[in-house]
Design a protein around this nucleic acid. Structure first.
Length: 740
RNA sequence: GCGCGCUUAGCUCAGCGGCAGAGCACCGCUUUUACACAGCGGGGGUCGUAGGUUCAAAUCCUACAGCGCGCACCA
């Protein structure tokens, strides 16, 4: 035993202690030795890390999430479970594209200048250089992951899992290719899913336009050239007489001189559809199947034709006649003034509405018709509902189940193809003689033949002798991460790990990930493993700035957890985060809690120094104390105890049972507050003071025992300092596997 | 528009039916050998507003207001 120094030096200690843990091998479940008489010894406890994006660096959300997980993992490990916390990285298709394309832009290049192959080379290079950084950052936080099992969603084996899943869905008839109006980001040059759209509030103008006998009030009147019908609510008495009729209306002529607006007469059908809200606007809508997803659905129901007037770059196309080539925003103004000129614009009214933008790059998205790949969601949504309804996966707090179910009730088929390069290329092969996959609407054939297989067929079954060409599209990133809980364990192979650790025990995520990821893992788990992927999905709060704003790197409002670790230590940082983690409430970040954590470090350090001085470094067995904690009476165990002893012992027992209860309910903040209060205000302020004037051996034994017990309970929260103190007091043993 | 959550001390938040709490900040005293990153003591809140239930409400119910989030809408 060595003497504790006057100060706790977190920087030196954290490096040394982390190495000690790694060397011990206890991060891997295999190192656990069954403990005699401990029924937990044979049980496993497994958590899959939410794989951070390759492009990511540690932010407060990661710190919160992974600290909570580490608390659970360390706690269970100390209880004797075989614990596995499996780390990994997500290739993050569209995010990575954004990062690399931003760099290319500095050199005045686009990804198309580079070409697919060279772009991918660059992406892999980038991955090699930066991809592991975030995992090293997690080590600094103290994360006790089994690093030997680290996975990447584009590892060879993982790719196999993704392709296997695709082929499985396809053979089952759950994946199809179809021409549909989807959300398209003109900047990223790819389709995106509903969940990748972010809405921004914006001031716009409602243009009241004369449409034959009707008045319509669109914002995006430039899409009017793509109208193929008008629609009203079937119950709307005002318009009943028009339903099913074709009416003649006056409209802008797109074929005339650009600077001479003129009118022309066209015929338009009127259909009745429930999607039309008779209360909104004038109760009549123009149906533009090519450029509005709701309208597309109406068109499908009424078999209306589709007319595309906006192209993939967000410009009007040749179908818009003289407006062709204009950007949609410019066309909107031009159309308005032309309508005004010909007397078809009745009035303008300011209107505040939400504009759909691309979540990744902020560009206004354009709904477009496009040939894409979809997963049919009906039966999968049913699976996802059943799992939660039956309680096999619990969503906590329970009120989030409501969100979950209502989203599943209104789900649309999942567009899984992306016109990007970084990711899992679709295992779909087209005949080269037909020119490979044709995607662009107009030229495309939705009934084009293809082969779905994990490997390229040797001979083209379509023409008989060409080298087949793989679809250039890659899969939505969430398609691969949906398989995470079992693909990381070796699926589709039937590995030992899969048998041992699946289903996993816990996952935690931010609210917005519930539908993006959690739900998709649930139906994937049910589909491929016949079992739920995890027992509990905990929704945690978002860390905001003190003013309640979103933390954002670009706005400079983010707090860097690494600098917190550097300045205050990993334990103080973890303390600060958990201290504020109360339920799923958002956290308005308050750095004083990290300060409190640092002070608490000092407190622990000094209690240890006092203990060392008082006992002369003597080590006591903890048998008597454990007997008491396990339910024996104080008088039975410590017959000579006085009132002060009774108080601290009872306090310890109460604290322990409360902490366990909180942890079992995933109430991390409450558990830490309870420990803090007991250690500081009962053990340090009271008992230590009382012991100062006592010279009996019992006081020393109790002080020693109570403190050791506190170190044990605090270890999951503050692993470095507690381990360091333990090493000083009991060299040769590791606190990280001491019995809780 | 529908749904969910929040509103408690200067700040950030616990408490969720029975004398208003913590961290940080503030004021006073104390360098007494674990710790001044401390100890002891103290100030500070009519618990968003208005009703209701109850012997008793910050805590339960109803309405309203403000803030935030999710979903829908954007004709």
């Amino acid at each position: 035993m060595s003497e504790l120094g006057p100060r706790y030096e977190h920087k030196e200690v954290e490096k040394r202690i982390y190495r000690l843990w790694e060397k011990s091998g206890y991060f891997a479940p295999e190192a656990h030795q069954p403990r005699a008489g401990n029924p937990e010894s044979k049980k496993t406890f497994c958590i899959m890390m939410a794989p951070p994006n390759v492009t990511g660096s540690l932010h407060m959300g990661h710190a919160l999430e992974n600290t909570m997980i580490d608390v659970l993992i360390r706690w269970k490990r100390m209880q004797g479970y075989k614990t596995l916390w499996l780390p990994g990285i997500d290739h993050a298709s569209i995010s990575t594209h954004n990062v690399i394309e931003k760099e290319l832009k500095k050199e005045g290049l686009t990804r198309f200048d580079l070409g697919r192959e060279r772009f991918l080379e660059k992406a892999w290079e980038w991955k090699k250089q930066y991809g592991g950084i975030i995992l090293d950052q997690l080590k600094k936080l103290g994360a006790s992951c089994d690093w030997s099992r680290t996975r990447f969603t584009m590892d060879e084996k993982y790719i196999d899992a993704v392709l296997t899943a695709f082929v499985h869905y396809y053979k089952k008839g759950l994946i199809y290719r179809g021409l549909r109006t989807i959300t398209w980001c003109p900047r990223c040059g790819t389709g995106i899913s509903d969940l990748e759209v972010k809405y921004k509030e914006e001031d716009a103008i409602l243009y009241y336009i004369q449409y034959g006998p009707f008045t319509l009030a669109p914002v995006r009147q430039e899409t009017k050239f793509g109208d193929t019908a008008l629609a009203v609510n079937p119950e709307d008495v005002r318009y009943k007489k028009y339903i099913g009729k074709e009416i003649e209306i006056e409209s802008l002529d797109v074929s005339g001189q650009p600077d001479k607006p003129s009118k022309t007469k066209i015929k338009v059908a009127v259909v009745a559809d429930d999607a039309v809200d008779p209360e909104f606007g004038t109760g009549v809508i123009k149906v533009t199947p090519a450029h509005d997803i709701t309208d597309f659905e109406i068109a499908q129901r009424h078999k209306l034709p589709m007319l595309q007037v906006i192209d993939e770059h967000g410009r009007m196309n040749e179908n818009a006649g003289k407006y062709g080539g204009m950007k949609t925003k410019d066309a909107r103004d031009k159309v308005a003034s032309d309508l005004r000129a010909v007397g078809l614009l009745l009035k303008e009214e300011p209107y505040r509405h939400n504009t759909a933008t691309c979540e990744r790059c902020g560009t206004v998205v354009e709904p477009l018709p496009s040939l894409q790949w979809f997963v049919k969601m009906d039966s999968l949504a049913e699976l996802a509902k059943k799992t939660v309804r039956s309680g096999r996966t619990k969503i906590l707090p329970a009120n989030f189940e409501k969100n979950y179910f209502s989203w599943l009730d209104n789900i649309r088929d999942w567009c899984i193809s992306r016109q990007l390069w970084w990711g899992h290329q679709l295992p779909v092969f087209f005949c080269k003689k037909e020119g490979g996959e044709q995607r662009v609407a107009g030229q495309a054939k939705a009934d084009q033949k293809f082969v779905v297989a994990k490997e390229k067929p040797k001979k083209c079954p379509i023409c008989g002798n060409c080298e087949m060409e793989q679809s250039p599209d890659v899969l939505d990133t969430w398609f691969s991460s949906a398989l995470w809980p079992f693909a990381t364990l070796g699926w589709p192979e039937k590995t030992d790990d899969l048998k041992k650790y699946y289903p996993t025990d816990f996952i935690t995520s931010a609210r917005e990930i519930l539908n993006l990821w959690i739900m998709r893992m649930i139906f994937s788990g049910e589909e491929f493993m016949d079992k739920e992927p995890f027992a509990v999905a905990l929704i945690h709060g978002t860390i905001l700035t003190k003013e309640g704003r979103r933390m954002s790197k670009s706005l400079g409002t983010g707090i860097d957890p690494l600098s917190l670790i550097e300045n205050h230590g990993a334990d103080a940082t973890r303390f600060g985060v958990v201290w504020q983690a109360m339920g799923s409430q958002d956290i308005r970040w308050d750095e004083t809690s990290v300060q409190a954590g640092r002070k608490f470090n000092t407190k622990l350090w000094n209690i240890a120094r006092f203990l060392q001085k008082k006992t002369g470094g003597k080590s006591y067995t903890t048998e008597r104390l454990e007997g008491f904690l396990n339910g024996e009476t104080i008088k039975g165990v410590f017959p000579e105890a006085n009132d002060d002893d009774l108080k601290i012992l009872e306090g310890l027992r109460a604290t322990r049972s409360q902490v366990v209860q909180y942890l079992e309910n995933y109430e991390f903040g409450q558990a830490l507050h309870t420990l803090y209060d007991f250690v500081w205000h009962n053990l340090a302020d009271k008992y230590v003071e009382q012991v100062k004037t006592r010279e009996d051996e019992l006081a020393r034994e109790i002080l020693h025992g109570v403190f050791m017990s506190c170190l044990t309970m605090l270890h999951p929260f503050m692993p470095f300092i507690t381990e360091e103190i333990y090493q000083q007091l009991k060299p040769g043993e590791l606190l990280m596997v001491r019995k809780w």
